[in-house]
Simulated assay, not measured.
Amino acid sequence: MIDVAALRALRSVATLGTLAAAADELGFTASAVSQQIKRLERQVGVPVLAQAGRGVVLTPAGQAVVDSAPDVFQALERCAEAARSVADGAPRGVLRVVAFSTAIRGLLAPAVPRLSTHSPDLRLHLTEQDPDQALHSVHSGVADLALVHDADGLPAPLPPSMTQSHLHTDAGDVVMSRTHPLAALDRPLARADLAGHAWVTSPPGTVCHQWFRRLFENDEPAVPHLIDDFATQLSLVAAGEVLALIPRLARPPLGDHLVARPLRRQPKREVYAAWRRSAEASPAIQAVLRELAPENQLSPASSTA
């Protein structure tokens, strides 16, 4: 009979290309992964990997094994979930959740106290990952639930083995010092209002930088600071000389010295929860989804909070 851990190791190697990368993802040493692969080869009776430079590639037999792996994992997961559901349907144990940083801050962290009250036997293990990596982690079985956002208006492509549910619409506001001239405008800001002001923004390649560039189209505002951390951005904004475009999920309480104003053309991104179809009946996943449902989320930050 094929060893499930060895099968999972082969699929990880096939996806990541090296034993070392697979070992890092699975939490083993490269030697342990190599031994799992050799055990799998003994079980199926043929080589499943071949050396290719510094990496490895699947043999045709190995590719056939990997192509069949999702059916195996889904069948095993359905078996386990059926057992848990039949028992009493109570969420318990550990649920491995992967999510981008602002979803952890703005959605998961506020849900943890409610989850502790309603599902005291369930624990979350949270890991920060970008959407593409998060979906891979769930698809490969390394994680159970992912929180992801769309990329420039396009939802992240899901493997056929996964499904998703919309959780939240996040928007970006302009944050400024209360002493800044724009703070006196108690209305949504137009692009003309922003002309001539300096900014701190996230580095190129991030969603917030895309929002920022789209806000100005072909204009070239002054951007003396490129900072990835939103708390650091706000510390520079508090000094009174720059503005920042901050997603509401990423925004802490602004206190007495900062103010946020919405934009007339509001930049937005959609946030989704994604999980394996075979885990649909999981009491733990369903419990977390209930706590993350829009009616249970904290009210969006107001324009002046």
Rank of each mutant, 00 (worst) to 15 (best):
S235G: 07
H209Q: 02
A183F: 13
V174Y: 02
P224G: 02
G205Y: 07
F216K: 04
A171K: 13
P267Y: 06
R251Q: 14
P203T: 00
L254D: 14
G172F: 06
C208D: 15
H225D: 08
P247K: 13
L185F: 05
P267K: 06
G205Q: 10
Q266L: 11
G205H: 08
P253D: 10
L234Y: 00
A183S: 15
D229W: 04
L263G: 12
T179F: 09
R269Y: 05
G172T: 02
W199I: 01
L258N: 11
G172W: 03
V237R: 03
I246H: 00
P188I: 03
P221H: 08
V223I: 13
H225T: 04
L243C: 11
T179A: 15
P203L: 05
L254P: 14
R265N: 13
V200T: 11
R187P: 09
L185M: 05
L249S: 12
A244K: 05
A222Q: 13
E241P: 04
A184H: 13
H197E: 11
A231F: 06
G255P: 08
L254A: 13
T206C: 03
R213F: 01
P188W: 02
P262S: 14
R251S: 14
F216H: 12
E217Y: 04
G205W: 01
G240K: 04
R261T: 10
A244N: 09
A250N: 10
R261H: 12
A171E: 15
S202V: 03
D229N: 14
A198S: 15
L236F: 09
V242D: 04
T232M: 11
V242I: 01
A238Q: 15
P252F: 00
L245H: 10
P188F: 00
W211S: 09
R269V: 10
